[in-house]
């Protein structure tokens, strides 16, 4: 970390655990839950958010002194919408199948509260470099949760990772399936995403008592 001062490094490492955007700040839940049935989709979503949040934070931070505070929400929305259109078009060009799966959820990055939340809370009051680091840090914290949820849902639900079977072949009964293991198709359904995130929150808060809520 020779490049970054201690304070700057904290901007990146904090959102991983103690200030995680999903489990602590409760931002950006919608997409985290909706697209995590597959690891691949989770990964692409994380990268998209990383791009939008990193670049968006810098843009907003550069403009922070000229944005009139009354119309700042609209300005922020326009900046995000533009970046999201770029992401959407890139995905359509290079990963068409995936962009079909993600569908409306790429568009919903615009209203992903994580983005507006970081713009409001950080980029409007800090310089471009620190805002960039904050954006990257938060997007990574968001991505970590997405990938954990996607990992468990795809592994337990379909027995695959990135679409590659890892537990053997369920039809020919090889690998784990030879011992009577069955895929839990329920994990692929929407409600399990909520429960998996709930369990992640449980584990995290049991490890760090300071995060426990009063009620």
């Amino acid at each position: 970390m020779g490049l970054l001062s201690k304070k700057d490094a904290k901007l990146i490492t904090d959102p991983f655990a103690d200030n995680n955007p999903i489990t602590i700040q409760v931002l950006g839940i919608c997409s985290a839950l909706a697209i995590t049935a597959e690891l691949k989709a989770s990964l692409v979503m994380s990268i998209s958010v990383l791009f939008v949040l990193g670049v968006g934070n810098v843009v907003i931070s550069l403009m922070r002194n000229i944005i009139p505070s009354k119309i700042r929400i609209i300005v922020q929305l326009i900046v995000v919408a533009t970046l999201v259109i770029i992401v959407d078009l890139v995905l359509k060009a290079f990963a068409y199948e995936l962009s079909k799966t993600l569908g409306a959820f790429i568009g919903l990055i615009i209203t992903n509260c994580i983005i507006m939340g970081r713009f409001e809370a950080f980029a409007l009051g800090n310089g471009p470099w620190r805002s960039f680091l904050d954006g990257i840090g938060n997007a990574l914290g968001y991505g970590v949760i997405l990938i954990i949820v996607g990992f468990f849902r795809e592994l337990l639900g379909a027995g695959t990772l990135f679409g590659i079977p890892v537990l053997g072949d369920p039809i020919e009964k090889t690998g784990l399936y030879a011992y009577g293991y069955e895929n839990n198709g329920f994990m692929l359904l929407a409600p399990m995403a909520l429960i998996v995130v709930g369990i992640i929150i449980w584990v995290q808060r049991s490890r760090n008592k300071a995060l426990i809520e009063e009620h």
């Binding site: 909520l194 709930g198 369990i199 929150i201 008592k209 426990i212 009063e214």
Partner: peptide, 12 residues
């Protein structure tokens, strides 16, 4: 359970 209070239990 204390660690589940608030956000965790709401999710579940």
């Amino acid at each position: 359970p204390p660690a589940l209070r608030g956000l965790g239990i709401t999710f579940i």
